[in-house]
Simulated scan of single mutants.
Amino acid sequence: MAPSLSAQDYADITQIFALFGYTFDSAADAGYQWADLYTPDGVFVAGSVVATMRGRETLAAFAAGRLAFPNGFVTLTPGPGTPHNPLAIAHILTDLLITPTPDGAVAKAYRLNARIGDDGRATLAPGGVYHVLLARTPGGWRFKENWYIGPGGAVQEGAKRFLATAGTGAAPAAATGATPGSGRDRMPALTLDAEDDAAIRQLYARFSHAVASGAGDTSLSHLFTSDGVLVDTWTGTSHRGPAALDGLARAARARQEGQGAAGDTEFVWTVKLEATPQGAFGKAYMMTGAPQAPGTPVVMTNGGQYWDDLVKTSDGWRFRKRVFQRSSQVPPPDTRQGR
C-alpha cells in the first residue's frame, strides 16, 4: 500500500512551516523556539557543508544570530544574541509540497526574502528552496533534516536524494549518521482539527479578496462577529461593528472605480494558528501591492503582521478582533508577542 498522510497530518505540517518563519524571524526565546522545531538530532544545512548545524544548542545559536559562517569560516558570539523585532517579516515560505513516505514525509518549499523599511516600503526577492525530511514524534511533526539551497545555488550532494523522490511517495535514502529522534514539545499545541484549520485559512483568503475588491456591501462585516473590530495600530484607527466595516468595503470599491483598475492587493503568507479556550489565535505576514501604470510591476507599499482573535460561530469561523501591526513600528507591550 502506498504511504499516505491524514488531513490532520497535512494541517500540522503546514503549521510547522508557518512556525519556521515566525520563530526564526523573531529569534523567539533566544532562538530555542526555532531549534525546537527539529528532532534532538535534527540538522539544518544552510547552503554548504561548512554551514551544517546539528542539535538544539547549535540551531538556537544560529537563529539568534550568534552563529555565522562568513567567507567559509565559523564564528560564534557569546551571549543571548541581538534582540529581534517580533513584528519582523523576513522568511516567507510558499508552494509547500508535502509527500508521504513510509517513515514520515518529505517536503519542498520555495522561499521569498522580505524586508520592510523604516518608511514601511516592502521589498521581496527570490530566496531559494528548502528540501525537508520530517519525522512524526511523540511531540508532533518535527524537522529531521532541512537542506536550504539559495537562489541559483548548487544542490548539495546530501539533498539530491530528495529530488529523485519528490512527489513519488518513496522515502529518500538515509543520510550518513542520521538516527531517529523523539522530538520536543516546546511548540504551541496543535489542537485545531484539520477541518477548522482549513476553514480559518479560507477566512483569511476571503478577507484579502474583500479588501482588494470591495465587492458587496457586507464583504467585510460578514467575516467578523457582530461586535468584531479591525484595528490598525500604525494609523491609530479602529473599525467596530458592521456599519464601520462595511464602510471600509465601500471605500475600497470607490478607490477601485476611481483608479479604473484593480485596487490594492493584500498578499498574506505564513498563517500560524493556535487553539485557545475562546477559539483560536492567528498570526499572518501581510504585504500590500499597489497598482501602478498599466504594464508596470506592482509596488509593495506596506507590510506587517495580522494578530487575530477568532471564534467559531453558528455561521462558521469569524474574526472577533483583527489587529494590523506594521513591521517598522515599535511592537506594543502585548502579552501575545511571544506566541
Results as ranks from 00 to 15, higher is better:
53 M>Y: 01
40 P>G: 01
334 D>W: 12
113 N>R: 15
314 S>N: 13
96 L>Q: 05
312 K>C: 12
101 T>S: 04
128 G>H: 09
321 K>Q: 15
142 R>K: 13
181 G>F: 05
188 P>D: 02
212 A>H: 09
55 G>W: 08
284 A>I: 10
306 Y>L: 00
15 Q>T: 11
120 G>P: 06
311 V>R: 13
178 A>S: 12
287 M>G: 07
314 S>P: 08
177 G>V: 07
25 D>G: 01
179 T>I: 10
66 R>V: 01
102 P>R: 09
211 V>C: 04
256 Q>A: 13
41 D>M: 10
228 G>C: 01
58 T>F: 02
151 P>R: 05
101 T>A: 03
233 T>R: 14
35 A>V: 04
131 H>P: 03
162 F>L: 11
271 V>I: 15
157 E>P: 12
192 L>K: 04
211 V>Y: 12
45 V>M: 13
319 F>L: 08
245 L>K: 02
258 G>N: 09
135 A>Q: 13
320 R>G: 05
22 Y>M: 11
104 G>S: 10
95 D>F: 09
159 A>N: 02
297 P>Y: 05
301 T>D: 05
303 G>C: 06
130 Y>P: 00
131 H>K: 01
44 F>W: 11
280 A>R: 03
25 D>P: 06
191 T>H: 11
35 A>N: 02
280 A>Y: 06
262 A>D: 14
31 G>N: 01
150 G>L: 10
47 G>V: 04
263 G>M: 07
216 G>A: 00
107 A>F: 03
271 V>D: 00
142 R>N: 07
2 A>F: 12
244 A>K: 09
21 G>D: 11
187 M>C: 10
197 D>L: 00
165 T>H: 07
45 V>E: 15
66 R>T: 02
98 I>S: 00
223 L>C: 05
112 L>Y: 08
254 A>D: 12
200 I>H: 07
24 F>E: 13
31 G>D: 02
149 I>K: 09
203 L>F: 06
177 G>H: 08
63 A>T: 02
242 P>S: 07
101 T>M: 00
243 A>Q: 15
225 T>I: 04
257 E>D: 14
196 D>L: 04
158 G>C: 02
319 F>M: 10
274 E>T: 15
232 D>K: 00
117 G>D: 12
159 A>Y: 03
308 D>E: 06
126 P>N: 05
238 S>A: 14
245 L>D: 08
274 E>A: 11
92 I>H: 08
153 G>H: 07
250 R>E: 11
248 L>K: 03
116 I>M: 03
218 T>I: 05
140 G>F: 07
182 S>P: 07
92 I>F: 06
276 T>N: 01
288 T>Y: 04
288 T>L: 13
62 F>T: 08
315 D>E: 13
111 R>P: 00
30 A>R: 14
111 R>Q: 12
57 E>P: 01
24 F>N: 11
